[in-house]
Simulated scan of single mutants.
Amino acid sequence: MSKPVVELRLWRQFVAVAETLHFGRAAVRLHMTQPPLTQAIAQLESVLGVRLFDRTKRSVQLTDAGAALLAPARDLLSRAQALPATARAAASGDAGRLRLAFVSTVGYSFLPRWVREFRAQHPGVHLELLEATADVQLPALERGDLDAGLLLHSPGFAPAGFEHLRISREPLVLALPEPHPLASARSVSLPRVLAEPLVMFPRRILPSLHDAVFGLYHAAGREPQVAQEAIQMQTIVNLVSAGLGIAWVPQSVREFQRQGVVYRSPPGRAGVPQCETTLAWRGAAAGPLARFVEFARRQASAH
Rank of each mutant, 00 (worst) to 15 (best):
A90G: 08
A95I: 10
G245Y: 04
A65M: 04
V173N: 08
R55K: 13
T63I: 06
Q121E: 10
G96K: 03
S78E: 13
G96C: 09
A140D: 07
G156E: 14
L21D: 05
Y217V: 10
E178A: 14
G268I: 03
A65N: 05
I236D: 00
A183G: 06
R12V: 02
A285C: 09
V188H: 04
R166K: 11
A26V: 00
A132N: 12
H218L: 10
F110G: 00
L98S: 01
L70D: 02
Q274M: 13
L129D: 06
A71E: 07
G283L: 12
F162Y: 11
L77Y: 05
T63K: 07
E196A: 11
V262T: 04
S168V: 07
A26S: 05
E7I: 03
I236V: 15
G243W: 02
G215S: 09
S168A: 15
A185N: 08
L127P: 08
R204S: 15
S46H: 14
L176Y: 03
V136I: 03
S184E: 09
G144S: 13
P35W: 08
V213I: 14
P288W: 11
S59L: 14
R282H: 08
L70T: 08
L194H: 07
Q251F: 11
R51T: 13
P36D: 08
W11Y: 12
P181S: 14
S301K: 12
A27Y: 07
A247H: 09
V136T: 06
Q232R: 14
L76N: 00
T133R: 03
A183R: 00
L127M: 10
E45R: 09
L10S: 06
Y263W: 12
A91P: 11
R25Q: 11
Q225I: 15
G215H: 05
W281R: 01
G245E: 06
R51Y: 14
A270S: 15
L44E: 03
H210S: 08
F102Q: 00
A302Q: 11
Y108I: 01
P171D: 07
L141P: 02
G107R: 01
L111G: 02
G144K: 09
I41G: 07
L141H: 02
